[in-house]
């Protein structure tokens, strides 16, 4: 199956290792990956700051780029950015040229961990990581994209990895896109509490499916001189892989994963309402 990689600007600019790990994992599970060069960004930096008009060309460029290669799926390494791609259909619903294209994009776009679990049916990616780790559940991936399960299932199957729960897992880390830049006084207090909570777990590794949240939490950890190892979930699932350990979800349970266990985020129901899907 052919998969278009939605690289996200943050991975393009800062985190090549996250992109590499994602591509390697996807190829291990039989995906042909392609990366349209004209893609840039989901548009959240400007859109969420109120520059909605200025973001329209960003949406259109991204759609043109991602649809420029005929693929079965579009997969990205960041829950928040992936959610924004899926919301293009709401933002462009009155655009005669792009409304339909935006729907096409939404229909085949998945966040990396949910694609692995819900589409490819992977239960155990064959990875090993001898560590105690905790997981930061990003707000947009959880609440807007509605994905609360896939990362946990996949991480639970990593050999030798001990997962410990993060207190106040429901609270934002204080990233919030340009919120972190525009309101540093508030953001600092939020990220400090997150750092304290991560430290309180005793975990040596912090994992997430959103590189931007990780960049924020890691940045505060480093500024405070505290120790932690940061890993994107793709890096964990690409660590010391033994293909003989790979396990799949039983065929009979796959349909439910694909349709039933997902799309519970409230934005998704609004999307359905607005576009009549």
């Amino acid at each position: 199956m052919k998969v278009v990689i939605f690289s996200t600007c943050i991975v393009d600019l800062f985190f090549p290792n996250v992109g590499k790990a994602m591509v390697e994992v996807l190829e291990r599970f039989g995906c042909d990956t392609e990366m349209p060069v004209k893609q840039i960004c989901c548009g959240q930096p400007t859109f969420n700051s109120g520059y909605v008009k200025e973001t329209q060309p960003v949406f259109r460029n991204q759609i043109d780029a991602l649809l420029s290669i005929d693929a079965d799926y579009i997969v990205g390494p960041a829950g928040s950015c992936v959610n924004m791609l899926r919301e293009f259909q709401v933002q462009l619903k009155d655009d005669p040229e792009y409304a339909e294209k935006a729907k096409q994009v939404a229909a085949k776009t998945w966040e990396f961990s949910q694609f692995l679990y819900r589409v490819l049916g992977v239960l155990d990616a064959g990875a090993e990581l001898d560590a105690t780790a905790t997981y930061h559940r990003s707000c947009h991936m959880t609440r807007l994209l509605g994905e609360r399960t896939s990362p946990f299932v996949l991480l639970d199957h990593v050999k030798d990895l001990k997962m410990v729960p993060l207190p106040h897992i429901e609270n934002c880390c204080g990233f919030g896109g340009l919120f972190s830049v525009k309101e540093p006084e508030i953001s600092k207090q939020m990220v400090d509490e997150k750092v304290d909570d991560v430290i309180s777990t005793g975990a040596s590794v912090l994992i997430s499916a959103d590189p931007a949240c990780l960049m924020n939490i890691a940045g505060r950890f480093n500024r405070r001189g505290e120790k932690i190892k940061i890993m994107h979930i793709a890096e964990v699932l690409n660590h010391n892989v033994d293909p003989s350990r790979v396990k799949y979800v039983p065929e009979a349970e796959r349909d439910e994963l694909y349709a039933g266990g997902y799309n519970q985020g409230f934005t998704q129901s609004d999307v359905k309402k607005e576009v009549g899907a």
Partner: peptide, 20 residues
């Protein structure tokens, strides 16, 4: 500045070493 007032920013990889 708002970012680095609070936290460190990663330096960007060289062009030859970026994801693309």
């Amino acid at each position: 500045k708002g970012w680095t007032d609070v936290r460190d920013l990663p330096e960007m990889p060289k062009h030859s070493e970026n994801f693309r």
